[in-house]
Structure formats: structure tokens, C-alpha cells
């Protein structure tokens, strides 16, 4: 590449500024979460926590009494963290597994099998990519209600469990690129489509399937609107919804910012851990998804 000239120095400075802008909000969450909420308004400039305390985390997790929490500017409400974490895990995991698996099957059918009307049906599926979710959300909500599935995991999971147009589109593009010769060789050996799909296509597509799974997991974990509508009750409430409820439970007039930030960090923690564990794979795979 080129020598370290003025241009490259400027570029490095820009990159550095970018990283600061990206990371600062994460730091600010930490700083606020470790502060005493009642002291926060008086010290907006302090870059360090104000009267460092673990109080916010304690009251979010319900480890302090209501009186203690209220004295610290909280509401006495707690996030039932482990329950909501379990719910989020259940929802994200089942959604991801089902969606990716079924989408892969459909993608295989669109990419490799020959049947009448295939391309037209595929075009129809693609058009669904443009249907705004809110348009399907309203009738789906009514449907889920009529099915009696409100406030159940099934209600939260079902709409995304079978397919998304994006997932099918994404995997089809990849399956199209798989070498046909291998497949034909397998066919000569007498393998049916079922064996080819499970024995050949899936193992060979491990990378894009993993990519899609990770993306689906992130999106499903972060989904707010749908679970807010159908999964309001405690027993099926996911973390994102719980955080919204915790926010609105803070005392009228004086939000418990420290508690809120603590709750935010706690809610983001599982994702951050997942991210740290798979950082390389995620960054590489997202790059991958950009190329058709």
C-alpha cells in the first residue's frame, strides 16, 4: 500500500474518532448505571460515576427492598431477569432454528427442484419482502387472538417460524452456486432429493446457514413490536419488552435513569457475550451476506 502520508494520518484520525463515537454511549451507560440516581441531575458533567454504587443493579434485579429502591430514586419495580432471559432465549432459539430450517428447504426447492410455476411462486415470495410488517402485524394480531394464542410463546414465535422472504432469497442465491456435478454424482448413486438435501446441500452450506442463523438470532432477540403486542404477560415477556415496561414503571416525573441504564446493560449483556464469543464469525459472515 501507500506510505504514511498526510492523507493516511487524517484517515487514521477519522477512524479513531469514529470508534470513540461508537463506543462512548456504551461507556455512558456504564457510568450512569453505577451512579446514585438521586445525585445524577446535579452532576451532568461528571465523566465518572456520581457516588459510585451498585444500587441500580440491585434494584433492577430485585435484590433491594421496595423502600430502599424508592429512596434511591427507583420505583421498587424489578426486572425478573432470569425469567425474561429464558423467554428471550426460547423465542430467539426456536424462531431461528425453525425459520432457517424451513427456509433452507424452500430455498432448495426454488434453487434445485424443477416444478411448474416455480419462478412465479418465487416472484410472489419475493414480493412479500416489500410487505411492510405493520400491514401483516395488524391482521396477524387478530389471527393470533382468534387462535387463542395471545400471551403464549407459540403466538410470539409462529409468524416467523416458517419462513421470511429474506431468508429464502438469501439461501437460494447460495444454493444456486453449489456445484451441480456433486449432486448429479449423488443422484447416479441413487440418492433422492431428501438425501441430497440433508447429506449434501446442508453440510456444504454450513457457512451461509450459520450466517443466516446468527442474523436471524440477532433480529429475533431484538424484536420489540410483535412481542409487545402478543406477549405482554409476565410468563412470556421477553427482555426487550421487559425493558420497556421497566422504563414506564419508574416513578412519575423522576425517571430512574441509573436503574434504566443498569437494566439496559443487563438486557444487552447476553447479546454482548454472544458477540464476543463469535465476533470473528459474525463480522465475517455479515460481510458475506452482502455478496449475492
Amino acid at each position: 500500500m501507500r506510505k504514511l502520508g498526510v492523507g493516511r494520518t487524517v484517515a487514521w484520525v477519522m477512524l479513531f474518532i469514529l470508534l470513540i463515537v461508537t463506543l462512548f454511549p456504551f461507556y455512558w451507560m456504564l457510568r450512569t448505571a453505577f451512579s446514585d440516581n438521586t445525585q445524577l441531575p446535579g452532576h451532568p458533567n461528571s465523566l465518572l460515576p456520581v457516588e459510585t454504587t451498585l444500587g441500580a443493579f440491585k434494584r433492577v434485579l430485585g435484590l433491594s427492598t421496595i423502600e430502599e429502591a424508592q429512596a434511591q430514586g427507583g420505583s421498587g419495580a424489578a426486572v425478573n431477569f432470569w425469567l425474561y432471559l429464558r423467554n428471550s432465549l426460547v423465542v430467539a432459539t426456536i424462531t431461528t432454528v425453525c425459520q432457517v430450517f424451513f427456509s433452507a428447504m424452500a430455498a432448495y426447492a426454488f434453487a434445485r427442484l424443477r416444478w411448474p410455476g416455480r419462478d412465479k411462486v418465487f416472484a410472489l415470495f419475493l414480493a412479500a419482502l416489500m410487505v411492510p410488517p405493520i400491514f401483516t402485524t395488524l391482521p396477524n394480531f387478530v389471527l393470533i387472538k382468534n387462535l387463542g394464542l395471545l400471551n403464549s410463546f407459540a403466538g410470539i414465535i409462529l409468524p416467523g417460524a416458517f419462513m421470511t422472504p429474506f431468508a429464502i432469497f438469501f439461501l437460494r442465491q447460495f444454493f444456486l452456486g453449489i456445484n451441480r456435478e456433486l449432486e448429479e454424482a449423488a443422484m447416479i448413486d441413487g440418492a433422492g432429493h431428501r438425501r441430497i438435501f440433508f447429506g449434501l446441500i446442508i453440510p456444504m452450506s454450513a457457512a451461509p446457514i450459520a450466517t443466516l442463523a446468527i442474523l436471524t438470532y440477532i433480529n429475533s432477540w431484538n424484536d420489540y413490536f410483535w412481542p409487545l403486542l402478543v406477549g405482554q404477560q409476565e410468563n412470556v415477556r421477553v427482555l426487550t419488552v421487559a425493558l420497556g415496561v421497566f422504563r414506564s414503571q419508574t416513578p412519575q416525573g423522576g425517571p430512574d435513569w441509573a436503574g434504566l441504564m443498569a437494566a439496559t446493560l443487563i438486557a444487552a449483556l447476553p447479546m454482548i457475550i454472544l458477540f464476543l464469543a463469535f465476533a470473528k464469525r459474525i463480522t465475517n459472515s455479515i460481510g458475506f451476506s452482502g455478496i449475492k
Binding site: L18, L19, T22, L23, P25, F26, I218, W221, N222, Y224, T240, L243, G244, T264, A267, A268, M271, I272, L274, F275, I282, T283, I286
Partner: peptide, 12 residues
């Protein structure tokens, strides 16, 4: 680091 914000939910 560049990707990190994407991991945090919109609401958060």
C-alpha cells in the same frame, strides 16, 4: 467495534 451498536436493541 464498528458493528457493536447493531447488537443492541432499537429500544435500548
Amino acid at each position: 467495534i464498528v458493528l457493536a451498536p447493531y447488537l443492541v436493541a432499537n429500544v435500548v
